[in-house]
Simulated scan of single mutants.
Amino acid sequence: MPTFVIERTIAGIGAASAADLQAISRTSCDVLRSMGPDVHWVQSYVTGDKVYCVYNAASEQLVREHARLGGFPIDSVARVVTTIDPTTAEA
């Protein structure tokens, strides 16, 4: 299944409480359960005013539908074509 990186602007999200982040996560998981197995949230990185999410999904459209149903903003969606890490230098 393809991997996508999603950028979301959410003002002040870096200062959100643990309870707020839990509520956002719960909403996301509830929507994902209703959508079936073709879209999966891997993890998200929270910064001051942005959230960068990693999803595995059959299509970009499913990622966008998840955002729509959950009420989450999307600034951009990019399909990952490959990954590299420090071990790539040793190959």
Rank of each mutant, 00 (worst) to 15 (best):
M1W: 06
M1S: 11
T3A: 01
F4T: 07
I6P: 03
R8F: 10
R8P: 00
T9F: 04
T9H: 15
A11S: 13
G12H: 10
G14H: 12
A15D: 11
A16G: 09
A16I: 08
A19F: 02
A19V: 04
D20S: 06
D20V: 10
D20P: 05
D20C: 02
D20L: 05
L21H: 08
L21K: 04
Q22S: 12
I24G: 09
I24Y: 02
S25T: 12
R26T: 15
R26D: 15
R26L: 03
T27R: 11
S28Y: 05
C29K: 08
D30C: 07
D30E: 15
V31E: 03
L32Y: 05
R33Y: 12
R33N: 10
G36M: 05
G36C: 04
V39I: 14
V39R: 02
H40N: 12
W41G: 00
W41S: 01
Q43V: 05
Q43Y: 11
S44M: 01
S44E: 03
Y45F: 13
Y45R: 07
Y45D: 03
V46T: 15
T47Y: 01
T47K: 06
G48A: 14
G48R: 14
G48W: 10
D49Q: 01
D49I: 03
D49P: 00
K50I: 00
K50W: 04
K50G: 00
K50R: 14
V51D: 00
Y52S: 01
V54M: 10
N56H: 15
A57R: 11
A57N: 02
A58W: 01
A58C: 12
S59I: 13
E60C: 04
E60P: 13
Q61D: 15
Q61S: 15
Q61F: 11
V63G: 02
R64H: 04
R64T: 12
E65M: 07
E65L: 09
E65C: 08
H66N: 12
A67K: 09
R68I: 02
R68C: 05
L69N: 09
L69Q: 15
L69W: 02
G70Q: 07
G70L: 09
F72H: 00
P73T: 02
P73Y: 01
P73S: 06
I74M: 03
D75W: 06
S76T: 12
V77N: 06
V77W: 11
A78N: 10
A78P: 01
R79A: 14
R79E: 09
R79D: 03
R79M: 12
R79S: 13
V80D: 04
V80C: 14
V80K: 02
V81A: 14
T82I: 01
T83M: 09
I84F: 11
P86W: 07
P86E: 13
P86Y: 14
P86I: 06
P86K: 13
T87Y: 08
T88N: 08
T88E: 11
T88Q: 12
A89G: 10
A89E: 08
A91S: 11
A91C: 12
